[in-house]
């Protein structure tokens, strides 16, 4: 029985590899998009701020599964003749999903930088890009790590949903192996263990880093929640030229 199983290990390993690729793509792309979304929240143009707010608010108000079904089934219809592979659709869906959460964390970390830093940068004649590039983001980046890790951790788990659109990633591989071996219990315990081995140390790292930051007096923004979007009107940080 266990011997049977060994021959299926490569299939599970391949699935784990697919999950890894998917997650790396979505983590990189989602972080970049999230950075843009978060920075848009500091714009001096109200329209830009509202676009960012609506994007964030909407994506966080619907299930990831719906986003994935949409990017897989509906999105290709918008581009005549396009067929997206499951990997591409999954990566797009996951990227959009995490970018909304990362955008909120970026906004929170920008808000954690004292107002005087914005004013000092402006008083020296820096424009928007210079101000954020040299003064604000280096300071914001320090506190962004723990909530960012939290989001990536959740994303790794959530990536299992991409199996629903048929991508043979780790969870789907487990399902296939479970069916062919007639040992679904073993298969899913094994799959769960792989996720655990990746996520558990990541969570520990996040908490360790957060403690260290707090010990040195930083105000760490907590992970964005579904209701805190209502906390305040989006707006630029400085009462300058609005």
């Amino acid at each position: 029985m266990v011997g049977d199983f060994v021959q299926f290990l490569p299939a599970l390993a391949k699935g784990a590899g697919t999950t890894a690729i998917l997650c790396i793509i979505a983590a990189v792309a989602g972080s970049l998009l999230g950075l843009v979304i978060g920075l848009m929240r500091s714009s001096s143009w109200a329209v830009v701020r509202w676009i960012s707010a609506i994007f964030t608010n909407f994506l966080r108000g619907i299930p990831l599964l719906i986003i994935l079904l949409f990017t897989y089934f509906a999105l290709p219809l918008l581009i005549p003749g396009a067929i997206f592979s499951q990997m591409v659709s999954g990566a797009i869906g996951l990227t959009l999903f995490v970018s909304a959460y990362i955008g909120e964390v970026v906004r929170g970390s920008i808000e954690s930088v004292p107002k005087g830093q914005f004013e000092a940068a402006e008083a020296l004649g820096m424009n928007f890009a210079q101000k954020f590039r040299y003064v604000i983001m280096p300071q914001a980046m320090r506190v962004i790590v723990p909530p960012w890790v939290g989001i990536i951790l959740a994303m790794i788990k959530d990536s299992s949903l991409v199996s629903v659109i048929g991508l043979v990633e780790l969870t789907q591989a487990g399902k296939i192996v479970g069916t062919s071996t007639m040992e679904p219990l073993v298969a899913f315990v094994l799959v769960g263990a792989v996720y655990f081995v990746i996520c558990y140390p990541l969570g520990h790292f996040g908490r360790w880093y957060e403690k260290r930051l707090k010990a040195s007096g930083f105000n760490v923004p907590h992970q964005a929640t579904a209701t805190d979007i209502l906390d305040e009107e989006p707006g630029p940080r400085v009462g300058g030229n609005q």
């Binding site: 004292p114 005087g116 402006e122 020296l124 004649g125 424009n127 003064v135 320090r142």
Partner: peptide, 21 residues
């Protein structure tokens, strides 16, 4: 040109606002 004005006018704040990093 806001930036040009500010390059021409130096400002010192009550809270210094040095860049800590």
């Amino acid at each position: 040109n806001t930036s040009a004005v500010r390059q021409d006018v130096g400002m010192v704040f009550q809270q210094f606002n040095l860049f800590p990093h």
